[in-house]
Structures are given as structure tokens and as C-alpha cells.
Amino acid sequence: MSNSDRARSQILNTLKRQAKPMAVDQPALQVELQWGQQESFQNQLKSNGADCERVADSVAALAAVDALIKRNGWHPLPVIAPGLLQKVQLANRWDSIHTEVTEAGTVAVSEAYCGIADTGSLVCLSSPDNPTSLNFLAEHHVVFLPGHRIVAGKRDVWKLMQAEGIHTPRAINLISGPSRTADIEQTIQLGAHGPRSLTVFLLDQLNP
């Protein structure tokens, strides 16, 4: 018997012995999936230090990304998540496109599964199409989210995933703002380890 096994039976036995079975009230289940308001999503997200803008489609969004890059002097070539790259029309906007963050100062563009209105959070599911590292390694993070995919609260995310038959992926990242730290003198600094900025485009539709 390994140490782990011994510890396992010891812990579980103690717990079973000590546990006081008690009647636990199950909360009233709210069965229906609740959708959320775009406006509240936007407000919350902004209060977390992110930018959020509504655009017509991915063409407009990509043009906006380009403008952002130029305006801020960011790395000229964005990294685009493979899944997104397949769906959108790049219209030769950039000559070469990476799908992996290799250089410092890159801008990563990825797609969120849905948004949460209550807290202004993006829900990003990891997949071959949407690697987790894109969300954290880039200097600036741009996220596309179809504007109609905003649910009310966290519980609704799990309902939506269930309804759409999505199995638990390796990573579910709820992203509610750019990376930040207040570890030195309680002063908030953006860009601790992850992206220094987070820009969300709410798309009315994917392609024109």
C-alpha cells in the first residue's frame, strides 16, 4: 500500500466517522438559461479596466484591430487564434499571420465562447482552435465575441455549454479584465504577467 493510499483511506475514514449528516437545503433551481444585457456586460467590463466596443462584423473588427495597432504602435503583426482565422476574411490585411505567440509585444486575437453580463467576464474555452496560452502570453489581448452570446450569470454559462453539448475542456478561462497586480503598495498596475490591455469587440454578426 502506497503512502498515498494509506493517507486516502485514513482521511476518508475520519471524514465518514466525523461527518454529521445534515439536511442540506437545495437552492431553488432556476432551470431556464438566462440571457444577459449587452449594456451591462459592457459597463462591467469597462469598470474592470478593459475596452469594449460594438462593431458590425469581423471585417470591421479586424479593421479596428489594425487601427489599434497603428495608433498604439504595437507589434504590427497580430497573432490570431487558429479557429478564428478559419472563420474570418482577413482580406489581405496582414502579410503573414501567426497562430502562436513568439515575440514580445504581440497582439493576440481570439474568440470568446460567451460573455457574462453580471460581471463583464469573457468565457474562453481551450481547444486546438483556441489555445489557452494566447489569452495570457501576448502583450495585448483582443477578443471577438458575437454580441448575442451574453448570458446573465456564471451558472448560465454551464447551462449554455450543456445545451450546446460541449464537454468540459482542459481550460475554461473567465477573463474579466487585463492582467493586474496590486502587490506593491496596494497600487494597481496593469500587465503583471498577462496582457497589459484587453479589448473586446462585440460583433453584431460574424461576417458581412
Binding site: 462591467q44 474592470n48 487558429p82 502562436e100 453580471d118 460581471t119 463583464g120 467576464s121 481551450s126 481547444s127 486546438p128 489555445p131 489557452t132 496560452s133 468540459t168 475542456p169 482542459r170 481550460a171 475554461i172 478561462n173 473567465l174 477573463i175 474579466s176 479584465g177 487585463p178 492582467s179 493586474r180 498577462g194
Partner: peptide
């Protein structure tokens, strides 16, 4: 005092076969 921290993440097992990272 945030309604959500910047990152709340759920990790589940090792990387899936087709995943690029993890």
C-alpha cells in the same frame, strides 16, 4: 473588492490530444 478577479480559471486534466498547448 472586484466583482471578479481578472482571471478565474477552471483546469481539467492534462491537455487533450489535439490541443496545441497545456
Amino acid at each position: 473588492g472586484q466583482h471578479m478577479s481578472a482571471y478565474t480559471s477552471f483546469f481539467n486534466g492534462p491537455k487533450r490530444e489535439a490541443d496545441a498547448g497545456g
